[in-house]
Design a protein around this nucleic acid. Structure first.
Lengths: 136, 136
DNA sequence: TTGACACTTGAACATATAATCAACTATCGT
DNA sequence: ACGATAGTTGATTATATGTTCAAGTGTCAA
């Protein structure tokens, strides 16, 4: 049933729940011209991993190189590098090569805000908490 | 190599890259008291799927029930319901039962902002297609 | 009560993903 | 040039995720 149309209780064409059908039509129209879903999802996906969140937290404090990140997060340089690749692809972090080091930083204030807003969402008790958190 | 400490080229205690070590120390301290990574990642994970992004886009326009969403998105009610479960768990959408219908809406302005900021990030050309774009 | 409707849930399966290991490139000091 | 350092990349593997299908709950009309 690709296009099942739910009949609301009243079922009268535009009675009590009439505005509903208008809403559905409006949404249907807007959905048609909305092709950014995959791109938006990809950005969220790049943020949807505890390791990458920790990386972003670290980079929100200071610009760091791959080895620093590996050290600070207690994981292999390879693992970090793989993750940085994703974050770079999504333009969430930017890389600058100096000598044989590569320094990473958050791309812009935009990214900081998305990150901060989500942290606030969590802190406001909107998402399940293992135990009360601290922040930087 | 849980805690490998990258030695920078100069290797002189506080030469050219001296401020780096201070940065690393600061980050290390902040990471220690940062346990929200998993929660934050969970919220992002709930947003990290094209279907759920489309659902959020639809709900940003109007409050809709499960069947409406299935209809508008062209997918099964079961699939939608499974996704709504995740979105509800993360408090990204709220549900209100009226009779045998369940109406969904975005939880708050917070969610709208995260969503809008990320859409802007994408629109600004920051995020390439699913496979597109190589850079720097 | 009966049947239809609106939605939820559990199991199963195909795909996607993150860490590991090993091999690779590039840069620096000597 | 050589060896050491800093990062990247490909293959592999265990785990996670999204959809489908089938069966379930709760609500409403007749």
């Amino acid at each position: 049933m690709a296009t099942r149309r739910p009949r609301h209780p009243g079922a009268i064409p535009r009675a009590r729940g009439a505005h509903r059908d208008d809403s559905v039509a409006a949404v249907r129209a807007s959905i048609a011209g909305y092709d950014a879903a995959a791109d938006v999802a990809n950005v969220f996906r790049a943020l949807a991993d505890p390791t990458r969140v920790r990386i972003l937290h670290a980079l929100s404090i200071a610009e760091l190189c791959n080895g620093d990140l590996a050290s600070v997060l207690g994981m292999s340089e390879s693992a970090v590098s793989h993750q940085m690749r994703e974050l770079r692809l999504m333009k969430i972090v930017s890389a600058e090569k100096r000598g044989r080091m590569v320094y990473f930083r958050l791309t812009d204030a935009h990214v900081r805000r998305i990150f901060a807003d989500t942290l606030r969402h969590v802190r406001e008790g909107r998402a399940p908490r293992p135990h009360g958190g601290q922040e930087a």
